[in-house]
């Protein structure tokens, strides 16, 4: 029992390492995502013509989460969409469906988190940084990214099987993500107002609940998608 558990862990680590090596090798994809995020923030900056103190905290958090949502959907979408059939076949042979979805969730979580941090930095640079309580904000960011990656990884798997998968990716994921997004915006608002951490506890717990549900469902349901 202990041995098999260790074995599974080893497999996971190996798969994760493979994801990262592949990702780092394809520099164009990473820089593409970075540029996408940068353009989004810059468009926000230009269209709103934002200067210091012009933007209200509520608008700041709405803009911030919209930018993160769009770049996260686009980033995670390529998790299964656009993957070469050969590499999917290879994965199919070397790993079980559960291992694949777990690595994808962890990997996408790290990617989302990096995007979130980068977005936060860009917002601070161009727009403003009204966050009063950074620790609450960061906790919210981590939980939201986890939720995003748990649901989006599965939906990317579904969308990749269909025609016009990029449109489908957006259509399928937005309604599912709205619950997570609402919680995130509320936590962010509390963090902007500098309320004490206890004020956001309910939202945090809700986010944890949603994450557990979507993570468990992804884990259980992914084998059915993978089989085809």
């Amino acid at each position: 029992m202990h041995g098999s558990w260790l074995n599974a862990m080893n497999n996971l680590v190996a798969l994760l390492r493979k994801e990262f090596t592949l990702e780092l090798r394809r520099k164009s994809v990473i820089s593409g995502i970075g540029l996408y995020l940068f353009s989004l923030v810059f468009i926000c900056y230009l269209t709103f013509n934002l200067r210091q103190n012009v933007i209200s905290p509520a608008t700041w958090s709405a803009l911030f989460w919209l930018v993160i949502l769009f770049s996260a959907v686009n980033t995670v979408a390529k998790s299964f969409i656009g993957e070469k059939p050969g590499s999917l076949m290879y994965l199919y042979m070397v790993a079980s469906a559960q291992e694949i979805i777990l690595t994808r969730i962890i990997y996408n979580f790290i990617l989302c988190l990096l995007l979130g941090l980068l977005g936060y930095g860009l917002f601070t640079l161009f727009v403003d940084n009204p966050v009063a309580d950074t620790s609450v904000f960061m906790a919210g960011l981590v939980l939201t990214c986890l939720g995003f990656s748990a649901s989006l990884s599965l939906i990317s798997g579904i969308a990749s099987k269909a025609r016009n998968s990029n449109v489908l990716m957006a259509v399928l994921s937005f309604p599912v993500l709205i619950g997570i997004l609402l919680m995130a915006i509320r936590i962010t608002k509390n963090a902007l107002d500098g309320l004490e951490a206890a004020a956001s506890r309910d939202e945090m717990l809700n986010l944890v609940g949603i994450n557990v549900i979507s993570g468990a469902l992804s884990y259980l349901l992914f084998p059915y998608i993978w089989r085809s």
Binding site: L154, I158, L172, L217, I225, S228
Partner: peptide, 13 residues
């Protein structure tokens, strides 16, 4: 199969 998966997932969401 895929729509059944989405059905379950979306219902939980």
């Amino acid at each position: 199969r895929l729509s059944a998966v989405y059905n379950l997932f979306a219902f939980a969401a």
